[in-house]
Design a binder for these strands. Sequence first.
DNA 1: AACAAAGTTGAAAACGATTTCATAATTCGT
DNA 2: ACGAATTATGAAATCGTTTTCAACTTTGTT
Lengths: 328, 328
Amino acid sequence: MTIKEVAQMAGVSSAAVSRYLNGGSLSQEKKERIQKVIEETGYRPSTAAQVLRTGRMKQIGVIVPKLYSDSVSQIMEGISEKAATQGYMVVVCNTGGEEESEIRFLELMENNQAAGVIIMGTVLTARKESILKKYSLPVVVTGQNYKGIPCIYHNDESAVKELTELVIKRGRKRVAYIGVNERDERAGALRRKGFQSAVDSAKEKLSQVYTAVGEFTPDSGYNNMVSLFREDPQIDGVVCATDTIAMGAMRAIRQAGRTIGEDISIVGVGDSWVDNFSETPLTTAHFYFKQCGTGAAEMLLGIIEGEDSTAPVRQTCLEYTIVERGSI
Amino acid sequence: MTIKEVAQMAGVSSAAVSRYLNGGSLSQEKKERIQKVIEETGYRPSTAAQVLRTGRMKQIGVIVPKLYSDSVSQIMEGISEKAATQGYMVVVCNTGGEEESEIRFLELMENNQAAGVIIMGTVLTARKESILKKYSLPVVVTGQNYKGIPCIYHNDESAVKELTELVIKRGRKRVAYIGVNERDERAGALRRKGFQSAVDSAKEKLSQVYTAVGEFTPDSGYNNMVSLFREDPQIDGVVCATDTIAMGAMRAIRQAGRTIGEDISIVGVGDSWVDNFSETPLTTAHFYFKQCGTGAAEMLLGIIEGEDSTAPVRQTCLEYTIVERGSI
DNA sequence: AACAAAGTTGAAAACGATTTCATAATTCGT
DNA sequence: ACGAATTATGAAATCGTTTTCAACTTTGTT
């Protein structure tokens, strides 16, 4: 079924049918005739032809480092929800952390005349930045903030600071921080900074402070905790950069024969398992990932639809909620 | 940049450039000239024009009931991995369980000339079936099996049967099953059937058997467990249709003052938290969700690329692995 | 050297929509 | 009832590719 055939059946020109679909001036009589034919035939216009002609594709790309992740899937949930309300398709690119595939995907989106792209929490290298500048593809970044690019993220520093203070308030004296690489501005550097500023302003209450760095995995948390215990078996407070890391650390703590929440406190960041695991005793900062997704989509669609290029680049910082559970 | 401009710059016809890109006969000399121009200009062909002309879009749709789910995101991971190797884009539709949006998405994919669609674990209504028949869109379904449609799923019945037997072998006498609506052929009817056949062939060893039905949520599991305890506080074996349900049930059990793994056994199905939660004591059947995703993508791409319409419709049943942890 | 087969080439015709443009048919104000 | 403003209308151009077709080269065989 093409627009021409529909036009013929309705006894009008294809221009008339196009106007019927896109709202141009058209007599009531022809409107009805066209409607009837479209209903009968089930005609739907070809997206490819529309895109070719108009240069607009109602599609946004989402770049993620992995799909199997609680925070990522919550953010995706938010994005897809928002995109659907505006009739945008969501196409996803799972980079597995490879910059190369991220760049290939950006090229693809450019070829597709996609409306825009949301990039989830990756480090912005010079190469990517120059590519983004070259392509005039609207972009929003989540979980990171870069100047000149619209971003949406959580208040990492403050969250970790508050959590650390909570641990200190419990009277813990030998505290450790298990973080991630500081090339990650927010989850790495800023969370670490939050921890640091909390311990700095409570120096007199603490006898020892340790720091370790690893990956975003439970195993990494486990290994780091084991090493920390080797260094000082009496550590009694642990602040982890993510819940996932905390999960691993808790395993190490139990193995060491210590009792979480009794003779040792531990906290994480993110609280992504809310649905699955009301059991988790972990005290943590609840991050609003889904809202982060809807927010990102909203910003992107705002840029796309409004195309008010004079508006300032928005940088949204989401707040968090400390949830105290048994682990401190 | 269009193909015409490239042609002009290289001093050839646009047909030559097209042949360069798609592999037609072309003299070495022109090949080099074209290559040079393309490199210099960074030309990339417009997807829309290609699709319009060829009628093929390297894109597959994925329909999911929700994105924030461990099993769904693992399956997505598998699909995206496989699709990427073949250069296919993945566009996702989050239905939130609404059939209407599923149907709208199928229409959209048809308009887009998408290569095919993977539908994740939804009930196949007559309406959907007729639509699928009308559209000649290749389809693969995961987590369900329908005759006439390529499917990939786990051996639900056998998994639950084996798990139930495990519980019975522990000497439990008063066992309960918490399942989901039987309109869901696999997770509902078949898992229930697995439980049933295990208890049937061990009738003499059991003194009481209970059955409850609910949703795929921890809360539903909790509520059902609470009711079951009201009915019989001495229940000592619980088989849940999913791990998520088991999670809620475990909360109820702890609240009732019983000790999981000691005076009561509980099992679930799925084992999706492998990464997050090595802590979970739950005995369960590990399902290979990611493999399910790659398998589905493989089947779909096979149908698309091979287009061997004479081949029989494939129905793949994946096996599982029982993982015994502390909960029995 | 002649002729067939194979390899190169570009012009032009699709693909299926939207939009411009000129013209024809209305409505409106006086 | 008359020109002016407005609304309806279809023919044709356009978007950027791929592919067919026919013509033209080159190569290979006898």
